[in-house]
């Protein structure tokens, strides 16, 4: 199964993200009252805890659309200069250490080869 097929389009957290991204007020609430925000959108305890813990793998397993996961991390850490060294992406390196190490080693190899 391709990873995007794990998405549960009916998950409350997926619905919530659409509105949070569009609203300055909700984005501020993300950082001041995440629990209350999640409650108002009907997010389950398991979804909330995975979000609070920035647990990328659990968010995927619960059915959060994979595109939304880095967007969630941006809400916690900010969006500017979101290169692979950004703090927001450390959560990916923790969740998928082998995949991440393999990719970043390839990037280093290509840079050494001048391409």
């Amino acid at each position: 199964m391709a990873s995007v097929d794990k998405c549960d389009a009916t998950l409350a957290l997926n619905e919530m993200m659409f509105y949070v991204r569009k609203s300055k007020e909700l984005r501020e609430r993300w950082n001041t009252d995440l629990f209350g925000l999640c409650r108002d959108f009907g997010v389950t305890a398991a979804e909330y805890e995975a979000l609070r813990d920035k647990d990328v793998r659990k968010l995927h397993d619960l059915g959060v659309h994979q595109y939304y996961v880095p967007q969630m991390l941006r809400l916690f850490y900010g969006a500017a200069m979101n290169s692979n060294a950004h703090a927001a992406l450390e959560a990916y390196k923790r969740a998928y250490p082998e995949e991440s190490a393999r990719a970043l080693a390839l990037a280093e190899k290509m840079e050494r080869e001048g391409r």
Partner: peptide
């Protein structure tokens, strides 16, 4: 590319 997926850094 795999935006936000397990292979987020992979090409």
């Amino acid at each position: 590319h795999e935006p936000g997926g397990p292979r987020y850094f992979w090409v």
